[in-house]
Design a protein around this nucleic acid. Structure first.
Lengths: 341, 341
DNA sequence: CTGAAAGCGCTAACAC
DNA sequence: GTGTTAGCGCTTTCAG
């Protein structure tokens, strides 16, 4: 068995209260006593139990992170960043993949409560607002990232999805594309904003917004590929597609290839997120970048500030998305333009 | 504050022992009492504290998972699978990304010990064998995946890396390639086995093994790209490269492209792992598949069996790697063959 | 400065 | 069947 505070106290010839004080570095302790206790702790390789200390009202030094799907690079990257920052600040991270299931959302929230996590970060696509309100009511700090829920006053770090959608669409327009389609993720708050941005950009450019050109699909390569193939089969197919994230953009690229379309000469795609995927596919994807690394760190910083009661008021940070131009987009060639006019 | 067992007991007019018994479903309890207690628990929305129950010797229902890098798809995919299986069995997962730092390995192990996790899974590339022995000595269950450490008697689920390396190389040979290079990950046990497989396959095919054709690099796209560029700059460049994983394979593909080589017509690449990356890059990668999903589930099953003392002896499972043929490999064309003879 | 003692929320004998 | 009670390992008054 591992040694307890009693073992240390006995061997050091002091009381457990004294040992506790040197562990937590508080109270008045004589220099020599402290030194001796520290020595014994090292000898015994004593590690204070977080469980016991949590029971006396201290923290568990653990935060829960709910994400939809760890195999999506956006989420694995932001999770990695959160995990790193949390550890820097002395907290562990327990991850819960919801797979977009409401049942799991509820199950995991309840689990985290039973485990007495100090706080909780909900990444995109969390569905049940009621569950969040419940946690807040119970006094446990909650923070959001990758999505903003305006109706709730919560710490949030997100990217301006509306502006991102607008930028992506406007960029395609600036390249001369007129027949621009969008493939978006179904059932995600952030996705809706991106669609709004798309619609507004189209309108402002005086381009017709055709509902048939907006497809909402499950966030899989296959789903996007199929949707893109349908779009490319239209009587007047789009010359460019704005994909709501990079998994979808890959699906679009595959569809284009299946239609013998060369990217970017015959057809342009733009993605969203700027994950590893954008750089490794061929051609590399033009995309709307989210500062993933920064978002992860910042949301952890904010949550832990709240846990430490160092937050006077809720923070709502909205970061600007950036257009990153790579090789999947190009000016519409006259030839193609004519075909579509 | 959240309600405690006392609140429930008081409101139900019974003792806390009774409540405890209905929670844990043991001891004799009258039907009516049970029903009443359950009703009160629901009314109060009572959630038993895992922290308190852990302190009395029960489990924390938490396992620790150490991985090198969550942004590598192999690890995010295997982590996702472990997380899912663990939750199915009632356990949470705390993840620790070591980034291949020995300091972090030590820090996280000690952290997990302080948190009293019920067990621990170490994924590939764990360096300090001594730390593992230490945990075992303290009686905490440890399992390994993605690597086998023969000197330690631990539960292990891994893939036969030697055979995988052999298969990859033999396949390239069967396509007529003679000048085959390998780019491997530096400092990983699994990588060494893959190299051995490569060497033996070359020997058996009667092909010369040139040390200069084996490069060990950091597991990044950039690292692999540079190494591949160097290989392609050789007086007699290889016509095929076996990359130790898919991140590396992507780097190799990029290098080939930079050298104006068409894959697979001018040049073949084969990867290892069979992650999302293999399917999304262009052309899709021929690769040696690890059954990632299965590995994750199985190692969790085994670890939790050990936690439950349901394991009579250590399990060491070595899964067979499978060759998955896609479009990044092709028979060596006569033309290229002549150049290299 | 240091220690005794109460208590955190729960479990597990052991009584009744 | 149900309740009493002694811990689990630690923190925190409060005395001394």
């Amino acid at each position: 068995m591992q040694p307890t505070i009693y073992d240390v106290a006995k061997k050091a010839g002091v009381s457990i209260a004294t040992v506790s004080k040197v562990i937590n570095n508080n109270g008045r302790i004589g220099k020599d006593t402290r030194k001796k206790v520290i020595k014994i702790m090292e000898e015994l390789n004593y590690q204070p139990s977080v469980v016991a200390s949590a029971l006396t009202g201290k923290r568990t030094e653990t935060i829960g992170v709910l994400i939809p799907d760890l195999t999506n690079p956006f989420f694995s990257e932001i999770t990695a960043s959160m995990e790193e920052r949390a550890h820097e600040l002395g907290f562990s991270v327990v991850i819960c993949s919801t797979n977009d299931s409401e049942e799991k959302e509820a199950k995991y929230i309840s689990l985290l409560l039973r485990k007495k996590v100090d706080g909780c970060i909900l990444a995109s696509r969390f569905k049940q607002v009621g569950l969040i309100e419940n946690m807040v009511k119970q006094g446990i700090p909650v923070a959001l990232t990758g999505q903003d829920i305006p109706s709730l006053n919560l710490n949030t770090v997100s990217v301006d999805d509306y502006k991102g959608g607008y930028k992506a669409t406007a960029y395609l327009g600036s390249l001369g594309h007129k027949n621009i389609a969008m493939i978006a993720e179904k059932n995600a708050r952030s996705s809706e904003e991106r669609i709004k941005g798309y619609v507004d950009a189209m309108n402002e450019m005086g381009l017709p917004v055709d509902e048939a050109l907006i497809r909402e699909v499950k966030p899989t390569v296959a789903g996007a590929k199929q949707a893109a193939e349908e779009l490319l089969s239209l009587h007047v197919p789009p010359t460019a597609i704005f994909a709501g994230n990079e998994i979808l953009a890959i699906g679009v690229s595959q569809a284009a290839r299946a239609f013998q379309l060369d990217i970017p000469n015959d057809f342009s795609v733009i993605g969203f997120d700027n994950t590893l995927l954008a750089t490794i596919c061929d051609p590399p994807l033009t995309t709307i970048a989210q500062p993933i690394e920064q978002m992860g760190r910042q949301i952890v910083d904010i949550l832990i500030s709240e846990i430490n009661n160092k937050l006077d008021y809720k923070q709502r940070i909205m970061l600007p998305p950036e257009l990153v131009i790579r090789q999947s987009t190009k000016e519409l060639s006259v030839e193609n333009g004519l075909v579509n006019d």
